[in-house]
Write a protein that binds this DNA or RNA. Structure first.
Lengths: 336, 336
DNA sequence: TACGTTGGTGTTAACGTTTGCGCAAATTGT
DNA sequence: ACAATTTGCGCAAACGTTAACACCAACGTA
């Protein structure tokens, strides 16, 4: 059906290697032959078989990417960043959705390894990196983004400074006059959840503010978690005055609960979180949020992979921690 | 570095084919040998080279997907649907972002064809399907989703009935008492844009409502288009009373303009559109919208590919037009 | 005349699999 | 006890490429 090198070669009565040389522009080929080959390629609509090439070259020219949720704009933008760098370097990417599921994530790691990807970029939902260990040992470069699983030896990692970012959010709330705080984080085995919580608490301690442990909860990074936890708290007599949600979905859920209880943001209760970028511009209230440079995280991670593949012998590990950027909005602004 | 069949074979003093047979569970292998092989596979952490397999099998077990924008939740959900079916059938997917760019789209088609995908699912941004023609001829199954490029012969296609959906939106607005309409669509060479416009206009005509052509504009499917076009209209003395935006981003932009001009939705002007699903639940006003079953579109499209690959001889083409589903919200509700 | 050079091309061996074929040994049936 | 069958396994070809190597012809140079 599809034309192969052999078809072209036979069609022109030359050898396959001659055709191959024309296509790759390597080695010598007579001018006239070259033109005849080029013509035949067009005529037969020849497309090189990338699978065969990959096998021969021992490189798939493909980067594997695993994220928890592709429909989350944060991850979608990371993917776009990766894709840009990949394109520039004539690589392509395979994206897998772990659906926040550690088992699925592991399956995908295996799948991608079998597909001989040149490297893996993973926003892992796992707490440790045991699974990744053996693949690394066998020479598969792995770059973690966003969440950093615990692992003994070195690793490549790209993320923002979650600790510092949360610290700054707390500072902002204190400055606005809030004193009674609540925290809803994600699964604490994920560094994104634990570091954000720790940074926030540290700031409270540094400012001599009492930590109210009954208003610290760990759920999933999902709307439902934010909603149900906040709902429960608001049913009590003692209510928090300012909420720190560890990601956007938790915040959305919490705000929904707050609205339902008829409370006002930010007068009755303030809300701050991570990653609440609003492409529509229509979300009310606009939320104070640390906005991660998702696209950049993607490009940086991809560049690490590219560099590693060019330089296979060098076994250096890069840890890139970006400065957080905070957008202050009405959800936490008491003073004008 | 990585272990191959040969490594295992040598390690055990058996032939490669024996090892291969154990792995694939095909052909006869003695019980004891099988166990020894299985053990060695674990010990050496053998992972089958999927590239070599694909070459030999003449199938990459991979579905290619091209969408205009992965960070649009609509496409992200389509991808999730495709991925689900792919997983169930032991296939994987490669997702490409055409960025609403027809040139990039064509590049990706070629790339995916070279990667020997078993089929292509494309939400094309092009007006015609010339590029796809030759690939189809060479036996590559192609399923169009969402937008249907013009093409002479048959094709596989999955989408909702855009014409009918827009007709229903118009009906709803008329029923609410609106009489002066504006339309902002996307590029008219895309069926998604033209059909939506036509369906809406047809309903107006059927109801004897005058078409105000100065309030019909075609831009891009982007926020900026909705914003600038609406802004211009609102600067005039004669203003429309109800807007039909052909997709969510156009609507967001238009609403931004409406808000800036201090007009009230839906009292001064109503807004309806396509695909304004709000995962946050916080967008104000909540928009009346035709919500496409994105996930289903994905699963259906993927199933078509799967079927085609099982049944290569059969050359049937499927056209699946789903019934539209409309969510009526405050952005168009005058009466209580 | 002979000899290096170089341009153009074909031959061949890989890359890691899968699989049809064949052969010897083991098992079964008569 | 001998044929017929079954079982277990190796051999080798193939999938579509690439690239090291070798070869021949034509040419320039000593």
């Amino acid at each position: 059906m599809k034309a192969t090198l052999k078809d072209i070669a036979e069609h022109l009565n030359v050898s396959v290697s001659t055709v191959s040389r024309v296509i790759n522009g390597k080695g010598r080929v007579g001018k006239e032959t070259r033109e005849r080959v080029l013509e035949a390629i067009k005529e037969l609509n020849y497309q090189p078989n990338e699978i065969a090439r990959s096998l021969k070259r021992q490189s798939s020219r493909t980067i594997g990417v695993i994220v928890p949720d592709i429909s989350n704009a944060f991850y979608a933008n990371i993917i776009k960043g990766i894709e840009k760098v990949a394109r520039e370097n004539e690589k392509s990417i395979i994206v897998c959705n772990s659906d926040e599921n550690i088992t699925l994530e592991e399956e995908y790691v295996q799948l991608l390894a079998q597909k001989q990807v040149i490297g893996l970029i993973v926003a892992s939902v796992g707490g440790n990196a045991e699974v990744f260990k053996q693949y690394r040992q066998h020479g598969l470069p792995i770059v973690f983004i966003d969440n950093l699983p615990k692992i003994e030896d070195n690793y490549d990692f790209v993320a923002i400074d979650n600790y510092k970012a949360s610290y700054k959010l707390a500072e902002h709330l204190i400055e606005q006059g809030y004193r009674k705080f609540a925290i809803i984080t994600g699964p604490l085995n994920q560094s994104t959840a634990s570091e954000r919580q720790e940074g926030f608490i540290k700031c409270l301690k540094d400012n001599g503010i009492e930590i109210n442990y009954k208003f610290i909860a760990s759920g999933e990074f999902k709307l439902e978690s934010g909603y149900s936890i906040m709902k429960k708290w608001l049913k009590g007599i003692d209510k928090p005055m300012a909420l720190f949600a560890a990601n956007n979905f938790i915040a959305y859920g919490a705000i929904k609960a707050i609205n339902e209880e008829g409370l006002k943001i930010p007068e009755d209760i303030a809300v701050v979180c991570f990653d609440a970028v609003d492409v529509t511009g229509l979300i009310k209230p606009q939320i104070t949020s640390v906005n991660q440079p998702a696209f950049d995280i993607g490009t940086i991670a991809a560049n690490i992979i590219i560099r590693k593949e060019k330089n296979k012998k060098v076994k250096a590990y890069e840890k890139v921690i970006l400065e957080p950027d905070m957008a202050i909005n009405e959800s936490s602004l008491l003073k004008k």
